[in-house]
């Protein structure tokens, strides 16, 4: 399983701990679809995304669109440096509307 349920300070969230690339895209889509269909509100941590490419970004965008369509709440949290770079590069931060909190150690 690339997606694990986690709990931190009482908050429940999902964590992607695999790469988000063309190689994992098909599988990711499946898993994320399953997750989304089960819950109305979810947070997905991107902290442990080991790699991300265009295919991965597509999935994130589509998942976000799908959640909106279904009236569910989806938030991406704990973006890691790599994800932030990609989002910045493609100017997608605003699209997701999630507050991007940089890990303290980055400073």
């Amino acid at each position: 399983m690339s997606i694990e349920a986690k709990e931190h300070n009482g908050a429940h969230f999902l964590e992607i701990n695999d790469e988000l690339t063309i190689y994992t895209a098909a599988m990711m889509k499946q898993e994320l679809q399953d997750v989304l269909s089960k819950q109305d509100e979810l947070e997905i941590s991107l902290e442990c995304v080991s790699d991300i490419d265009s295919a991965g970004i597509q999935i994130l965008i589509l998942l976000h669109q799908q959640a909106k369509k279904k009236g569910k709440t989806l938030r991406f949290i704990k973006h890691n440096r790599q994800v932030i770079d990609v989002l910045e590069t493609l100017n997608l931060e605003a699209l997701f509307g999630d507050p991007i909190v940089l890990p303290a150690k980055e400073f």
Binding site: K29, Q58, I61, Q65, L90
Partner: peptide, 23 residues
């Protein structure tokens, strides 16, 4: 200076082929 990623042409989740490019 500016980059816009077009997302409005994306298919719906169900129709999406994760290995196809919609960007």
């Amino acid at each position: 200076i500016e980059i816009i990623t077009f997302t409005h042409d994306f298919p719906c989740w169900e129709d999406m082929d994760p290995e196809s490019c919609y960007l």
